[in-house]
C-alpha cells in the first residue's frame, strides 16, 4: 500500500462491493465505563469487520477489510487472528503476506501482534524464510537498534531456522556504530553462549575479554561492557578473580582518575570473591580518596566503598550498606 492510500477515504457504506453487508455496531451496554471517543472511519471499519467476523466469511474481500482494520487498529488481536484464518482458508501466498507485514511494521514496529503474526508466517514458511527474517529484523534495527521485539524475533529465527554464521560480525558492526548499545552487547552474549558454530563459551572467552576490555578502556563510563565482562565468567567466579586482563583493566581505569565508578565497583566485587590486590592497586585506590584528612582505612574494601559513597552519591546508601556487609579481613 502506498502512503497516499490514506487519502482514499471513501466510506465502506458508499462502496458498492459492500452494499450487501449490514454493519454490526459495537454494543457498549447501558453503563459503559471508560467509553472511547471513536473516530467515524474507525467505528465504521470495525462495524463491517464485526459483521464479516460473525458471519465467518473467509473471502478475498474479508482479507482486504482486515487490512484496513489492521491499519487503523493494529493492536486488535481478534482482527489478526481472523486474518490468519482467512489466509489459511484461501491458501494465500504467504510471501505476499510478508510484504504486507513489512509495510505495517514500518509504522508500528513496537506492536506485539505484528511480531506474533510474523512469527506465525515464518513458522509456516520454515527455513525458506530465514534470510528474509534476518534481513527484516536488520532493517527494523537500523531504524531503532534497541527494538525489543525485533531482537526477540531475531533470536527466535536464529534458534529455529539458523543463520548464526554472520551474527557475531553483525554484533561487531552494531557496536562499532554505538558501543553504548546494550541490546547489541546482549546479542553478543546470546551468540557466544548459544551459537552452535562457535562452540563452548570458554573457547572464545579470552578473545572476548580482550575485545571487551578494549571497549571499556575507550569508554570506562559505559556500563554495558562491564556487565558483559562479568557475564563472560558467569558461574565461574574463580576464573574471573584469576584473570589478569580483568584486574588490570580496572587498574588502568583507576590510574586515569576519571569515570572510574564501574572499575571500583568491579574491584570491590573481585575482592569480595577473594582477589588479592597488590600494592599497586592499594596506591591507586588511596589516591582517589576525597581528602587526605579522611581517616585512612586499612581495609581496601572499605576504602573502595568510601570513595564510591562520595563519587556515586546517588547510591551513597548502597555503598554504605555494602561496606557494612564486607567480609571481615584477616
Amino acid at each position: 500500500m502506498d502512503s497516499d492510500e490514506e487519502l482514499d477515504t471513501v466510506p465502506l457504506s458508499r462502496r458498492p462491493e459492500w452494499s450487501d453487508v449490514i454493519p454490526l455496531p459495537q454494543d457498549d451496554g447501558p453503563n459503559p465505563v471508560v467509553p472511547i471517543a471513536y473516530k467515524d472511519d474507525f467505528r465504521e471499519t470495525m462495524d463491517y469487520f464485526r459483521a464479516l467476523y460473525r458471519a465467518d466469511e473467509r473471502s478475498p474481500r474479508s482479507l482486504l477489510l482486515t487490512e484496513e482494520a489492521i491499519n487503523l487498529n493494529p493492536g486488535n488481536y481478534t482482527v489478526w487472528h481472523f486474518r490468519r484464518q482467512i489466509l489459511e482458508s484461501l491458501e494465500a501466498d504467504l510471501f505476499r503476506e510478508l510484504d504486507f507485514v513489512d509495510q505495517v511494521a514500518k509504522k508500528n514496529s513496537k506492536n506485539y501482534q505484528i511480531w506474533h503474526h510474523r512469527r506465525w508466517l515464518a513458522e509456516k514458511l520454515g527455513t525458506d524464510a530465514k534470510c528474509r527474517e534476518l534481513q527484516f529484523t536488520r532493517r527494523i534495527l537500523s531504524l531503532d537498534a534497541k527494538n525489543y521485539h525485533a531482537w526477540s524475533h531475531r533470536q527466535w529465527v536464529l534458534q529455529a531456522l539458523g543463520g548464526w554464521e554472520d551474527e557475531l560480525n553483525y554484533c561487531d558492526q552494531l557496536l562499532e556504530e554505538d558501543v553504548f548499545n546494550n541490546s547489541a552487547w546482549n546479542q553478543r552474549y546470546f551468540v557466544v553462549t548459544r551459537s552452535p558454530v562457535l562452540g563452548d563459551l570458554k573457547a572464545v572467552r579470552e578473545s572476548e575479554v580482550s575485545y571487551t576490555v578494549k571497549a571499556i578502556l575507550s569508554n570506562p563510563e559505559n556500563e554495558s561492557p562491564w556487565r558483559y565482562l562479568r557475564g563472560l565468567f558467569k558461574d565461574d567466579a574463580q576464573s574471573w578473580v584469576n584473570n589478569s586482563q580483568v584486574s588490570s583493566a580496572c587498574l588502568k581505569v583507576l590510574s586515569v582518575k576519571a569515570n572510574y565508578v564501574f572499575a571500583l565497583s568491579m574491584l570491590l566485587d573481585l575482592i569480595c570473591h577473594g582477589f588479592q590486590p597488590t600494592q599497586e592497586f592499594r596506591d591507586a585506590i588511596y589516591s582517589l580518596r576525597a581528602s587526605d584528612s579522611d581517616p585512612p582505612e586499612s581495609d581496601l574494601g572499605k576504602a573502595i566503598c568510601s570513595v564510591l559513597q562520595h563519587v556515586d552519591s546517588m547510591r551513597a546508601n548502597y555503598w554504605m550498606w555494602r561496606k557494612s556487609k564486607l567480609p571481615v579481613t584477616m
Partner: peptide, 17 residues
C-alpha cells in the same frame, strides 16, 4: 475525565479496554 470518556488516541488500545 478519562472515566467519562477516553479521547480518540485511545481507540487503538480498545482491545485492552
Amino acid at each position: 475525565m478519562m472515566y467519562q470518556l477516553l479521547p480518540r488516541p485511545y481507540q487503538t488500545q480498545e482491545i485492552n479496554r
